[in-house]
Design a protein around this nucleic acid. Structure first.
Lengths: 353, 353
DNA sequence: TGTTCATGGAGAAACGTATCTGCGGAGCTA
DNA sequence: TAGCTCCGCAGATACGTTTCTCCATGAACA
């Protein structure tokens, strides 16, 4: 059984190809009678227009890319952190409601998948400085919107959290809870998130006159995270509060605290950046900073589609539009010296240790 | 700056279009000299072949779909359970290593995204009985591989866990730990997973002469899960062990047990099906059944690509190849009356992940 | 010298759609 | 009746590849 083409429909309906195309796409000037007849015939023949031909003709594929940086050998590590999973989900959903489909692509791969997929534009997550791939895409005239303020590569637009404000908010929050020496668990890579957050921390320290206490580790290596957490708490000038920039830092720090016999929050205040709800059930529950990835994903996709539909290949000059989105601090027991008013919550289990 | 086409390359290199195509794709009979010259010119002009044109000509887009059923109003709920997230990640990765990109599509959506994307084939997660979309895709000659044994819709191939064996294994495990009345928390929908698991439970009960004790709820509603867990433990003929078919059941059951003052595992044995590692840190840690979504995702994609590349549009007759994959029971404290012997090394798992 | 064969490459036909252009006829006006 | 407008539709072209067919050339061989 051969797939029916537009020609077959035209022949069966006794009209021309033009008429079929116009009737099905709601264009041209046709009486409703003709329109509905063509539709009926098309339906009967099970006609599906060829997406490839349409794309070739119109220059629009209805596909947008979601690029995530791959770390080292790992072929593909999105959803490694809940942030990516949530962000990808929201982005997919947002794309679909506007009639676009989203295809997840790694920044680099063995095969040249990029060349084989017709994209109308791309979302890029946390591009590194001078990212060559982003530059190449942009050069081709493809709209590129980045999640994370781009360091030094041209993009059509970008969206980011106000990381500096978020970090300072957390540090203030911890200081208010009585912290004197706040430590930071940070990363070694050069992405915007890590850089801005660390700078904000250093700036804050300088302002309040605290000596910086931080450990940096390669964020993509979960093992290194545990080691760094341990190192931070093992220092002679041990901090009395720690903020961890990455998702697993909370449990790692909690484990390290237990190893050193530090009670949380009495002797150590803890906050980490995470989208996982695991931290609502740890002992004690850990205060987290949510970057609101759903909102980011939705915004990024909508900006991208605006750019695609707005001016076609929009090369909007040297000043890409940026947008800062708010974060949300979810305060739990780990960052409060005084436990929250006991509600009717489940009894605290002393548990083993 | 116009995008360079194959014609421009041909003109600049002083050869014909054919030669350029052959040179770049490694076909035809050309001396290495010509080949490298063409490559160089193409590189200099920044030539990127049009994916749309290639797709139109060859009939291959290099794109495969990943379809997930949408429940009710929720626009898009994959990654709702860790299973989907892991499965999607593995599938994407597997597709990419074979040069394909994967696009996530909902079973239904407002816009007809299906018609606008050229797919070489589709992976369908847990199709419902007589799924109309699957039938339509199959009718179009598109290879369809399903995750979950298809109830009554034609597919090219399918992959599934041996759910019956898994459930019986768990029930035996619980009985061995001393359970006399094992309850089940199950779903109300008609997908294969729910159906097979429930049937296996009922069969087991019948065999050992236990009266079935189960509660069913709409699995897509997280709130309903907590209610159902509560209901199950509130029954006059309260079970002394429960297996929950869905990811959140573990915490829900644990919360319900606390409400009724039941100690786990002393008075209530608990197992649930989940891919989340949350259950290794609950109090007590909960025994989980892993369906190994990574392996499923990889297998499904590879089967699909085999079908795509094998015979083109393979309509392999009435007997789609099926494949049953093993599950893994991760035994933790919640299902053992006697705490596990403390070993120095992790229990067993030399295998890959 | 004529035949065969391998080599290197050119020409042109698709692939299936969207859309620009144009054409006959009907209705209306002058 | 000529001229004009608008309607309803058909023809033809272009989108950028891949690939089938086929031609020219020179060398090897009888």
């Amino acid at each position: 059984m051969e797939r029916a083409g537009i020609r077959d429909v035209a022949a069966a309906a006794g009209v021309s190809i033009t008429t079929v195309s116009d009737a099905l796409n709601g264009k041209g000037r046709l009486p409703d009678e003709t329109r509905s007849k063509v539709r009926e015939v098309a339906e009967r023949l099970g006609y599906r227009p060829s997406a490839a031909a349409r794309t070739l003709r119109t220059g629009r594929s209805g596909l947008i890319g979601l690029t995530v940086t791959t770390y080292g050998q790992e072929p593909f590590t999105f959803t490694e952190f809940a942030y990516f999973a949530e962000m990808a989900r929201a982005a997919t959903s947002a794309a679909l409601t506007r009639g676009y489909a989203l295809v997840v692509l790694p920044a680099t791969s063995r095969h040249d998948v990029w060349g084989n997929v017709a994209l109308d534009g791309t979302v890029v997550i946390d591009p590194s400085d001078h990212d060559p791939m982003v530059a190449e895409l942009y050069r081709q005239g493809l709209p590129v919107v980045s999640d994370g303020k781009p360091g030094n590569c041209p993009v059509t637009a970008w969206v980011d959290n106000d990381h500096a404000a978020a970090v300072m908010g957390i540090l203030d929050h911890l200081a208010e809870a009585g912290a004197r020496r706040i430590g930071l668990l940070t990363g070694t890579s050069t992405d915007t998130y890590t850089r801005l957050s660390t700078e904000a921390y250093l700036g804050w320290c300088h302002r309040v006159g605290q000596e910086p206490l931080y450990e940096a580790y390669p964020a993509h290596d979960p093992c290194a995270g545990a080691v760094a957490a341990d190192r931070l708490l093992a220092r002679p000038d041990r901090p009395d509060a720690v903020y961890g920039l990455f998702d697993p830092n909370g449990t790692d720090l909690l484990a390290a605290a237990r190893r050193y016999g530090l009670r949380v929050p009495e002797e150590l205040l803890l906050v980490c950046c995470s989208e996982s709800d695991v931290y609502s059930t740890t002992e004690p529950p850990i205060t987290t900073l949510s970057l609101k990835p759903q909102r980011i994903g939705t915004t990024v996709v909508n900006l991208l589609i605006d750019a695609i539909e707005g001016t076609g290949t929009a090369v909007g000059g040297d000043h890409p539009t940026g947008q800062l989105m708010p974060t949300e601090l979810i305060v739990r027991r780990s960052s409060q010296r005084r436990p929250p008013r006991t509600t009717v919550s489940p009894p605290r289990d002393p548990g083993e240790d």
